[in-house]
Amino acid sequence: MSTFDIVELRKADRRGLADEAADRIREAILAGVFPPGSPVREVELAASLDVSRGSVREGLAVLEREGLVRSAWHRGTRVIDLTVRDAEEVYSVRAALEGLASRSAIGRVDLDALDRRVDAMAERLAAGAPNEELLALDLEFHDAVYLAAGNRRLLEAWRAVRSQVHLFQLTRIRLGHQGYRAVVVDEHRRIARLLGDGDAGEVARFAEEHVHSALRALVDQLDR
């Protein structure tokens, strides 16, 4: 084995630990273990995860690129605050992405697979599933649309904001879950139907309104 091969192997191992750390910390943030605005400390995380501080630092860098945490000189790293301004920025970006994704997915997306995802939402909703489970199905639905759009840069843009969307949506449903549960199945069913109809303007319009209505609900709860 050459020196180059050894160096590459070690780098891959470190990236694996960093990704593992990022996954575990992300899960904790989304579960509310680290609330918005709270500090996340390298030493404590390294001890809890049984990895080096370097791996934690790299993992936090991943989450900073996703927009879930922010680092500042002499202040350390903190989970992002959920302000109205932050919400408006994230959801305005998402609305633009959803409009493009839905238009691009026409004729490409597996409509039967989308219907099965919506059916799963309806079944889990009827069974009284927790909001977090419904939201996971919700995001998987949108993941499928982005994948079907066939635009690599669009998919990367979605992945860059997906964790923030996840956190904001969790906040929305935790503050007013009945509103989310009342619309989650019907809105996604309509998106799937419009994709099948093939009207690019109409599906983009509704996909964007789907996002804007979520923003209005969240802002109303944050203002309270």
Rank of each mutant, 00 (worst) to 15 (best):
L114M: 09
L100R: 15
A105E: 04
G99S: 10
R117L: 15
L114Y: 03
M121K: 06
G107N: 04
E140V: 07
D115H: 08
P130K: 03
L137S: 11
L134D: 13
A129W: 01
A122Q: 15
E140R: 13
L134W: 02
D110Y: 00
S102N: 13
L135Q: 13
V109I: 09
V109Q: 02
A122T: 07
R124M: 14
A136E: 15
E140A: 14
L100Q: 13
F141K: 08
G128M: 11
E123Q: 12
A101R: 03
L97Q: 07
L134E: 12
A120P: 02
G107K: 04
H142M: 11
L111G: 06
A105K: 03
G128R: 09
R103D: 08
L111W: 01
S102M: 08
R124C: 06
A120S: 14
G128T: 12
A126P: 05
L137C: 11
N131V: 13
A126H: 09
V118Q: 04
V109P: 01
L139H: 11
E132I: 09
E140W: 06
F141Q: 11
H142V: 11
V93N: 10
R103T: 10
A105L: 01
D119Q: 12
E133I: 08
L139C: 07
L97P: 05
G99R: 01
R103V: 04
R108P: 01
A95W: 03
R94I: 05
R108M: 03
G128K: 08
L111E: 05
A127K: 10
L97H: 04
D112L: 10
H142Q: 13
A129Q: 09
L97M: 10
A101Y: 00
E123K: 10
L125G: 07
V118T: 14
G107H: 01
E98K: 02
A95V: 08
N131L: 15
L139A: 14
E98H: 14
D110N: 14
A101Q: 09
R117P: 00
L134I: 10
L125C: 09
A96R: 12
D119C: 00
L137E: 15
N131C: 09
A129D: 12
A105D: 05
G128Y: 06
S102Q: 07
R108Y: 02
D115E: 15
A95P: 04
A96G: 14
A96L: 12
R108Q: 11
D112E: 15
R117C: 11
L134A: 12
A120R: 15
R94G: 08
D112H: 06
A120M: 13
A126C: 07
D112P: 00
D110I: 02
D119K: 07
L137T: 12
G107W: 00
A120T: 13
R124A: 15
D115R: 13
A127I: 08
A122E: 15
R103A: 13
R108T: 06
L100G: 03
A113I: 04
E123V: 09
A136H: 08
L125H: 05
